[in-house]
Design a protein around this nucleic acid. Structure first.
Lengths: 190, 190, 190, 190
DNA sequence: GATGAATGAGCCTTCATTCAT
DNA sequence: CATGAATGAAGGCTCATTCAT
């Protein structure tokens, strides 16, 4: 008996992400995905009930990875700026290494695939990040501004920088990283 | 093709933008657009040769408006920070008042509708903005960082802030505007 | 403007019935139906939301016609045997002239298309027929047997006779009609 | 192909008949059959080359049983009415005890599975039944009517009565049997 | 010009059949 | 033999586009 090969799920995910990056959510087809992943159309339906489920499950996985990666090596007891730096760099790294995922998540937010509920659930996963910002405010290290605004300010700038680099095939140097970090930091510090 | 009723084009545009905001580029259909605009499917084809042309023309119009609006009331001979403030506020205002357009542009960037050439042509239109940044660098008012990075840093943060406000139906107060401006400004100033 | 041509519905029905007679409900396809009716596949979907709806609506129409036709020229105040004769002949005529419909109804009864509720609703429509049988019993003209059994005895024999004739392309003469009627009548009379 | 486990064939048959009764020939799938029979899809293909063969062989088996059962305990030398009674009761018993088979046979007649030839071959198997009818005519015990008509008259009424009982879960009493027999008999006797 | 019915190519999905284990 | 994952042809349905009114 041939057991279900769960590894195929990742191949399907990878193929989907690549196609969405190239063509957007509009216009990708199940047969394209299957072809790119290297098997027959029907095979995709062994692992996913339908296109919708494939997109939604991939979305969930991406959101999971995205939020989890923020906190790699994060030590909440470290000094604020150190902790902030850790998360900021994680955010940057994820965006660079998972550019396809970033694009996919963005496209999903305005699509018939993702429900309002899913959209809203996403932000709860970044609670420790929000708490860190609040701590920074309490320690008078950063501006007394609504934490959401700080978070968005940081994420928005990171995202557009990464996109730019991705589109223009720029290598992202350590110098770039630190320069960008300084800009963010200067923007929010008290 | 010289249609009598030029206003219909705008109604088609408005309908399209609203639908894309709700459902993304994926899943909008010509008949949906027509219905939302208030006329028959065939009518859309009197004003646009096909779906592709509709999307591309709307994209062009959006990019045009977007870039043009940056420079409303912009006086290149004003002091740097004043000029920068003008453009920054224009950018913010556009993003707020034309949220649908912003979403649409974003979705188009990863879609089969927009070619690589179109994508790249966009940035030429912001030349005066780039020149202003270069001037700020020369006047040692802002950091000695690649102008593109400054531009992206600014735009990215503005975009995510506006998105957040749009999704959460937050009113955007003058206090908010100035606070955000301060963050951007502190981020880039020397 | 091209108005919806309701006549197309009948053409679709006719095509469907012919195909079901030839191939059974199993194996008829929407494109076959469309081709036989003489238009494109998509056209069928202008008049019916999906295959299911097409089958169910056709089934309803057939049941309607079938039951209605029983009572053509039926005079409840006529002597029992005359009234019975009228309905019996109507039943026979319908089965002969609407052989396709008969086959279709039969196939639907054991199909995923027809619900239990629909199945049960059908028999209510033959109430006057049942009442006539009850009257015959009261007048001691026919056997004191459950009315359903009488009805089924009659319908079953008629159906199989008609099927036989249809399959063997036999002409149905008046002599045949009267002979068959006599058999039925002798079977149930007291 | 000499499969070890001949019993599996019967399980496949039983599963198929049950499914056809529930859903009709339309809409039954090989995997449904396999699941209902209790093994894997591929297993069915060890015993039958394909779906077509499965249906046709089952059809043949059903027709065989059906016709064979007519003549259980049948003594051609018995008086006509006794012999007729025997066969009539056999026919009724089969229809009751093999209701699924009856439905299946009926569905097959209008399906792409059964050829015209198969359809016609069926009736040859009832030759002794036809001969008995002819004998009854010669003995002036029954009406001088085409034997086929007599046979169909009898079979049709039996079938619909049984269907009715099956659908309404009625118990079939001996009284019912004899009453029905009387109706048939009165219908055909001279 | 405006309409919306008609068209048919193409997408999602199912399912008969095969085949590696 | 038995299994059920893999395959891909074919069917249901959608939707961009055309065209008769």
């Amino acid at each position: 008996m041939k057991p279900k090969d769960e590894g195929k799920i990742d191949e399907i995910y990878t193929a989907t992400l690549a196609l969405v990056k190239e063509q957007g959510l509009a216009g990708i087809t199940m047969s394209q995905i299957a072809r790119k992943a290297g098997f027959a159309t029907g095979t995709v339906y062994i692992y996913f009930a339908n296109k919708d489920e494939l997109i939604v499950k991939l979305f969930d996985k991406c959101i999971n990875d995205y939020t989890r990666d923020h906190f790699a090596g994060y030590d909440p007891s470290a000094p604020f700026k150190v902790a902030f730096h850790t998360i900021w760099m994680n955010m940057l790294r994820y965006s660079i290494e998972h550019f396809h995922e970033m694009v996919f998540i963005e496209q999903c937010f305005h699509s018939p695939f993702i429900s309002e509920a899913t959209r809203k659930a996403t932000k709860d996963r970044l609670l420790p990040w929000r708490e860190l910002i609040e701590r920074g405010k309490k320690e008078k290290l950063i501006k007394q501004v609504d934490a959401s605004w700080i978070m968005l300010f940081v994420r928005g700038s990171v995202r557009d920088l990464v996109k730019h680099c991705a589109y223009h095939q720029l290598k992202i140097t350590n110098e770039f990283r630190e320069t960008m970090f300084e800009m963010c930091w200067d923007g929010i510090r008290d």
